Simulated scan of single mutants.
Amino acid sequence: MSRQYILLPHIVIHNANAMSSTYTVGFPAMTAWLGAFHRMERELRRKDCPALRITGVAVACEHFHLQQYQKNKFAPINLAMTANPLKKSKKTGAYERPPFIAEARCDIRVSFILRTEGIEAEQSDDLKDRMLSLLARQKLAGGDIVSLPDKKQIQMKHLEGSAEERKFMRRLMPGFVLVERKDLFEALEGDDLDKLLTAVSLHAEPVLDETTGKIEKWMYRKNLAQGWVVPIAVGYRDLSGDKALHVANQRDPQTEHHFVEPLVTLGEFKMPYRFERIEEILWTYHYDQSRGLYECVNDISKES
């Protein structure tokens, strides 16, 4: 089958889920992006293009705004949340404000490159219309899509060689492409939580005036000197092992139930011109049965 790349530029999302795992808030989890296009693939295969396969997804962030409030730069950051409507208490009969769950939300603008197989030349035009129609009716990373690209902005191309691929990746500009930096994570000392805290720590150091002894300014220093490095959620670790579990009222009684915990590692945002091949920025699914890992990887050697 011929391999083709699809560019989906400048998609604006409102109220996306910024709580990427149980203990990280920021850019949405990679499972959210790959899951959204896996759903799209299933819908397209059902009627429009039975041979279609989406085998990789590249994500470029052009704008990110976390809905938060901070009184000053030294104060704690508080999430901006909505108040739930009043409801009548069964015990007292009075109207009360129900307890609410902290929801970290963000507004983002992203672009994608999809690596696909099984698209015939005569299907391309109709497929663009169908993809826009599906995106308009679904969520991305739990958020509402408020702006989609025009049909003419969506590009489907067969690329030959790194020169064409580099030119195609430039269309992700001015976005920053997210890639995995597991190497930085593994180079740190301590257990996994200590490594994560070390990677994201920001140290504030006062610079004193030599004559008055007063603070003249503050200098900020990170433990990781290089790059725009952030924690990212990339999948789940199976805690149930090989046991076939079933729980009461589960959605699909024919499917095994597994208890999992999130997988969090480090990622780095880089400009697209720093890469030679599109394969370097693509994310794919990978299942490691021996370790019980269901993960999204940015590693060509692990593609499955």
Rank of each mutant, 00 (worst) to 15 (best):
D129L: 10
P9M: 08
A18S: 11
R39L: 00
S240A: 07
A233I: 03
R46C: 00
M271K: 12
I113F: 03
A225N: 11
K222P: 02
V179I: 15
S147F: 06
Y69A: 10
K47V: 06
F100L: 10
K88R: 15
D299H: 07
P85D: 14
I281E: 01
F27N: 02
M131R: 04
I215E: 12
K152E: 13
T116L: 03
V234M: 08
V146K: 14
R170W: 07
K151P: 13
T211H: 04
L188Y: 06
Y23V: 04
G190D: 09
H257Q: 13
E96H: 15
K302A: 03
M81I: 10
I108S: 08
D252H: 14
I278W: 01
V57H: 10
I154D: 08
P262N: 03
A16L: 12
M30R: 00
I232E: 06
D150R: 14
K91R: 14
K128L: 00
I13Q: 13
G213A: 12
R237D: 02
R277K: 15
G142Q: 12
E279W: 00
M156L: 10
R251E: 15
C106R: 05
L282F: 05
E103V: 07
I281Y: 05
L293G: 06
Q67M: 12
A75P: 09
K152D: 15
A60N: 06
M169Y: 08
V230T: 10
L86G: 04
L148E: 14
W228T: 08
S124K: 11
I119A: 02
G213I: 12
L239P: 02
R221S: 08
P85R: 11
R291K: 13
L44C: 08
H65I: 06
K139C: 05
M40E: 11
R251T: 14
L202S: 14
S89Q: 05
V229A: 05
T22Y: 04
C106V: 07
V200L: 11
G190I: 04
I6P: 05
F275I: 01
E280Q: 13
F275P: 01
V200M: 09
A225H: 05
D150L: 06
F176D: 04
M81K: 08
A29I: 07
A199D: 01
H286N: 14
R42F: 02
G227T: 04
E120Y: 05
F269G: 09
L132Y: 08
K88N: 04
M30L: 09
Q289S: 15
A163W: 00
M19V: 03
T211L: 11
T198Y: 11
Y285E: 14
